[in-house]
Each structure stands twice: as C-alpha cells, then as structure tokens.
C-alpha cells in the first residue's frame, strides 16, 4: 500500500493533456457488451481511435440514472454473465495487454456494497482501475468509501449537474479528486441532438468554485459537440452514442466501430 502523496494517474493525465493544450476524450462502454469478451478488444481500439481515458460501465439491474441505450447494454451484459468480479478481471486483462490510459469504473452502489467497500477498492488498485463514478452515491453518503479510496490512492469522482447548488459544488473541495463529472443536461444518459445552451455558464460556475479538471458527459454524440464543449471543458465523455453504434453493427465489428467512431469524434475522419 502506498501513501497518498503522489498524484493519481487521472490527475497526471489531465495535467499532461493541459500542458499540450489537449482535451480528454473519454468513451463509456459497458463491460461485456455487446459480447462478454468484446471489451478486451474494444478498449484498445478506442485508444487507437483517439480515446485518452476509458470509462468502463459495471452493469446493474436497476440503472436509474440511465436512458434506454445504456440500460439495454447493461441488461445484455448481465445476460452475458458479467459481474463486478468479471469487470475487475477485464481491467486486469486490459492492463496485462498493455493498456496504459486511465481506466475508470462507472457503476451503481449496490453491487459495490455487496462486494465489500474495502475489498472493492483494494481490488481496483490491484487490477489497475484508477477511479470510480457512482451515480447513486452522493457526497453526503460517501465518507466511508472516500476514506478507503484515499488510502488506496484511487479517485472517487463526483458528479455535478446544472441543478446543483453553489454550496454543493463548493463542498466537493477536499472530497473530490481526479476530475469532476459535469452532467450537461437535466436528465438521464442518452444521445441528444443539442447540448445545453447554458453549458458555458454552468461550467464557468463550477470552475469558479473547484480546482479540479472538468469533464462533461450526457448527451454528447457529434464532433461538433466535442469541439464546442472542449472550448470550456477539460474533457468530454461519450456513452450512449457509441453504444448505439454497437447495437446497429455486427458484434464482431465492434472494435472497428469503436475505432472509427473515436476518429470521427476527434475530427480525424
């Protein structure tokens, strides 16, 4: 076990991108979707296509912050037999296969609680998972997990939304680490045609209260979104738009689809 002095891989990642005047491009994929083993090929393909960091979705039976696309991918993954232990194994295998970008789990609290908080964080550290986003674990309920995460130098990443009060945002100072996940819209996940017009103002408000890098997610689906949001944010997160492309393609083509979609989003194609 290490002491909590060196910056995490995620913090280092944002610092490095900033020094190159670049933005993080962060795809979200549900582990074990479209097929159980496919994530092992999809993640390297995403990185080849321009992803700088990857969010791995841990499927849950009751994903109440997700829209239909991510819901369906999670149900499919559960049918494929994906468990939290399997997600950890996937991360381990990705690291063994040479993946070096930050890996982040995004998943709901109950499976983590059932797995055991201490065991979960320790196993994340061992498997090379750098942080986690838990949409149904607000700061007020997260003291225990935050302490364990610090001990293992993992980042517990918090979300803020346009509805969040200043007080709430300020309270994340000292608690949050890695980056802050800015939810672009008042709603659940899912691709949308327009991103919120108030986004620059929202990001400016968050930026004025927090020292951390800001990544924006929910609804992002086009290179225009990525470019536009990249003006104000340090990173963009893309989930549903990518997953719906897997849904439309032959499962065997998922890595190709992943690579091409990242190229498209980052303006290389």
């Amino acid at each position: 076990m290490t002491t909590a002095t060196t910056p995490s891989r995620i913090a280092g990642h944002f610092a490095e991108l900033a020094s190159q005047n670049r933005k993080a491009l962060v795809p979200y994929v549900t582990v074990g979707h479209p097929t159980k083993e496919s994530t092992l090929e999809i993640v390297p393909a995403l990185i080849e296509g321009g992803a700088t960091m990857v969010e791995l979705g841990v499927p849950f039976s009751d994903p109440l912050a997700d829209g239909p696309t991510i819901q369906r991918s999670g149900f499919k993954a559960l049918q494929n037999g994906v468990t939290l232990a399997f997600c950890l194994e996937t991360a381990r295998d990705l690291r063994a296969g040479g993946v070096e970008v930050p890996l982040i789990f995004m998943g709901y609290y109950n499976p983590i609680l059932r797995y055991g908080l201490e065991r979960f964080v320790a196993d994340c550290a061992e498997a090379g998972v750098d942080g986690f986003i838990i949409p149904d674990l607000p700061p007020d309920e997260s003291a225990e997990l935050a302490a364990i995460s610090r001990k293992h130098q993992r980042d517990l990443i918090f979300m803020v939304a346009p509805t969040s009060r200043d007080q709430h945002i300020e309270s994340l100072n000292g608690q949050a680490s890695g980056f802050v996940y800015c939810v672009s819209i008042t709603g659940v996940t899912g691709a949308r045609d327009d991103v919120s017009v108030d986004l620059p103002a929202f990001l400016a408000r968050v930026r004025s209260k927090l020292e951390l890098p800001l990544a924006v997610g929910f609804g992002i689906s086009t290179p225009e979104h990525v470019r536009e949001i990249g003006r104000d944010a340090d990173g963009v997160i893309v989930g549903s738009a990518l997953i719906s492309r897997f849904d439309e393609a032959d499962p065997a083509d998922a890595p190709t689809v992943a690579r091409e979609f990242m190229r498209y989003l980052s303006g290389q194609a």
Binding site: P135, P138, R165, V183
Partner: peptide, 14 residues
C-alpha cells in the same frame, strides 16, 4: 435510510 439520490435530484430532495 439516508438519501442516495442521483446528483440532479439532490437540490429537489433538499
């Protein structure tokens, strides 16, 4: 008990 609300709902719950 407690309040495990998604972030968007935190102000509404308050």
């Amino acid at each position: 008990g407690g309040s495990y609300a998604p972030v968007t709902l935190i102000p509404a719950v308050e």
